[in-house]
Design a protein around this nucleic acid. Structure first.
Length: 583
RNA sequence: CGGGAUGUAGCUCAGCUUGGCUAGAGCGCCUGGUUUGGGACCAGGAAGUCGCAGGUUCGAAUCCUGUCAUCCCGACCA
């Protein structure tokens, strides 16, 4: 493609409403433009990069034996009523009525396709002999995100690869799950991403096992913990802390309880400021309604509650923060002064709580706190639970190691769904013994746009984007220096033709601009290999090859230029391929 | 949905506090010229319902009310 013939609107300045690097750079480099919050147009460069990511996903999916299909984005709302996900998605599910003749038809725009694909397969599959079977599609999904943000990291319309597998046995599901897991590793590696597979919550989608594929990045919306030594990695939502229930004994250093006047000071932060203590010397008491019954959850002051863990520890299905009236009822005080001593509801404590000696807690009396509160003497615990988010510095749950905490961008997610959807939608098959069984399912998603966002977020410098060869919209840019000289332009044009004939994705910067402008633009859009063609070099019979990642350029006789570019590209592809995980 | 910020030319922003000349600058764009290896220089030019609606006033980009949009934090989120 000739630059003069395409549409690459680069910008020198950073648009004021872009904050994260991927958003700023993709705007400046002319990959995307915003239509509204959470909706972006992909310009020619953006589309080319997106298509390359798509092609890699497609190749690796095909290699697993998954079959490509294309399902409608428009879906009848009844499907979501049948699985209960109309309610689960709530406002996130975009749905509306349209008129057809004298009828109203209630439709949804697919946020994902479990319902549609289960409906499809329930009509097709009747025997165990027809499975395993895996289908996938690459298609636009719609979600009315409450708060779209960070440019293309979270949008209300996005390109997703979603795959669904169907099985007659758990062994078969596990087998395909492993295949998909390995395919995902290859996909993200081929895309040049530093990915981290982590144990994950399966969320409202249901099922009993799942992994997320994360790109560690400062602006990621998820938090993940990992331990290099023990190889443990998990989403913070589900990460174990590596702590265990220990014997509960009153410390020998226990001092007498003291009552402190703390007027209008209810939060951990303000109490610490007033009493000049550290949050880890406090025990905070959170009042929840667990299946509508009030319970107190004790945590060390610097720890965060994990509602999923609390729900599981208490074996309840519904858990919510208690309202002020309930808090007043069980503590006798307003919000902010709850404590374990004398509270009128069951107490559940995190593993770390008994180790806080001479703790500061709420006094269950407005404007008062207690100091020197100790387990055993002042309140009683039978055992402790894992109720909190893991934190940096916690021991690894997989042996001798320490957890680190980083932010991550979720680019992929694999689930073992089990029979949630097949039961809800009556998708059954006959097994070997002619027993009717619900089909066992798995599902596997990749956010294709997020591959680009993740790359832009993690691979850039002060000059601009740095695409890997596999995703770059063009592999090579030929920057013509002195494009106003007919001879130079003709020669560059011939060179560009040869590269194209050799199958290279090449962009010819034929614009009649000063060299500095062209170099800045080439760096900004992040093309891996640049050939400086013309100017001083050509008079001496050489062109210059410069990799985006290298500070120096290499001078090559113009007669060897084609061979050299092809050789270097081949070598780079080879070294990229060498480090890929096997299928 | 709660909190905060912003909206003036294609982009970045000034002007608003204390209402008053014809609403400005840089970049970009157009014309001409000089330049040509890391975002050149000179001269001339085009481009704006000051987000929108209402109000106060002799007079509103500026003050008031409402509204819309965007961004950030939180809640929520496969």
């Amino acid at each position: 493609m000739r630059w003069s013939q395409t549409f690459i609107p680069t910008m020198k300045e950073i648009p004021s409403d872009a904050e994260v690097p991927s958003h700023q750079l993709m705007l400046r480099a002319g990959f995307i433009r915003q239509l509204m919050a959470g909706a972006y147009t992909y310009l020619p460069l953006g589309v080319r990069a997106l298509k390359k990511a798509e092609a890699i996903v497609r190749q690796e999916m095909d290699a697993t034996g998954a079959l490509e299909v294309l399902m409608p984005a428009l879906q009848p709302i009844d499907l979501f009523d049948r699985t209960g996900r109309k309610e689960a998605f709530g406002n996130v599910l975009i749905n509306f009525n349209v008129r057809r003749g004298d009828r109203n038809v209630h439709l949804a725009l697919g946020p994902t396709h479990e319902e549609v694909v289960t409906d499809l397969m329930s009509r097709h599959i009747s025997s165990h002999r027809q499975m395993p079977l895996t289908v996938y599609q690459i298609q636009t999904k719609f979600r009315n995100e409450e708060r779209p943000r960070f440019g293309i990291l979270r949008t209300s319309e996005f390109l997703m690869k979603d795959a669904y597998s169907f099985h007659s046995s758990l062994e078969s599901l596990n087998d395909v799950y492993q295949k998909m897991y390995r395919a995902y590793c290859r996909i993200f590696a081929r895309c040049g991403l530093d990915y981290l597979p982590v144990e994950a919550e399966s969320g409202p989608i249901g099922g009993d096992a799942s992994h997320e594929f994360m790109i560690p990045a400062a602006n990621g919306e998820d938090r993940i913990v990992f331990c290099k030594k023990t190889n443990y990695a998990a989403n913070l939502e589900r990460a174990e802390t590596g702590r265990k229930a220990a014997a509960i004994v009153t410390s020998g250093d226990a001092r007498p309880v003291a009552k402190l006047h703390t007027p209008n000071v209810g939060s951990i932060e303000t109490v610490c400021k007033l009493l000049k203590c550290k949050p880890e010397k406090m025990v905070k008491t959170l009042i929840f309604l667990a299946d509508d019954k009030p319970v107190a959850v004790l945590l060390r002051g610097d720890h965060e509650a994990n509602e999923g863990k609390i729900r599981r520890a208490l074996s309840v299905s519904r858990l919510e923060m208690a309202d002020p009236a309930t808090i007043l009822e069980v503590t006798g005080a307003a919000v902010g002064f709850a404590g374990p001593v004398g509270i009128k509801c069951p107490i559940f404590a995190d593993h770390d709580v008994p180790f806080v000696v001479n703790a500061i807690t709420g006094a269950n009396e407005g404007d008062y706190h207690l100091a020197n509160v100790n387990v055993g003497r002042d309140y009683v615990l039978e055992t402790t639970f894992d109720l909190r988010n893991a934190a940096a510095g916690d021991p690894s749950p997989r042996g001798d190691g320490t957890l680190e905490l980083v932010h991550g961008i979720e680019v992929g997610h694999v689930f073992k769904l089990g029979t949630k959807y097949s039961v809800a939608m009556d998708a059954m098959f006959d097994d070997e013994t002619e027993n009717r069984q619900p089909i066992i399912m798995g599902c596997y998603g990749i956010g294709v746009n997020r591959i680009l966002a993740g790359l832009a977020e993690t691979r850039h410098d002060e000059q601009g984007l740095i695409w890997p060869l596999s995703i770059a919209p063009y592999e090579v840019i030929v920057s013509v220096i002195g494009a106003n000289e007919t001879e130079t332009l003709t020669a560059a044009d011939a060179f560009y033709g040869e590269l194209m004939s050799a199958g290279v994705d090449v962009l010819l910067d034929d614009r009649d601009l000063r060299p500095g402008v062209k170099f800045k633009d080439a760096d900004l859009i992040g093309i891996p290999l640049r050939v400086n063609f013309g100017g001083k070099g050509l008079k001496e019979g050489v062109v210059e090859l410069k990799w985006r990642t290298s500070p120096d350029s290499e001078r090559i006789p113009v007669t060897d230029a084609l061979k050299s570019v092809l050789d270097q590209l081949a070598r780079r592809r080879q070294s990229d391929a060498a480090s890929l995980p096997s299928r």
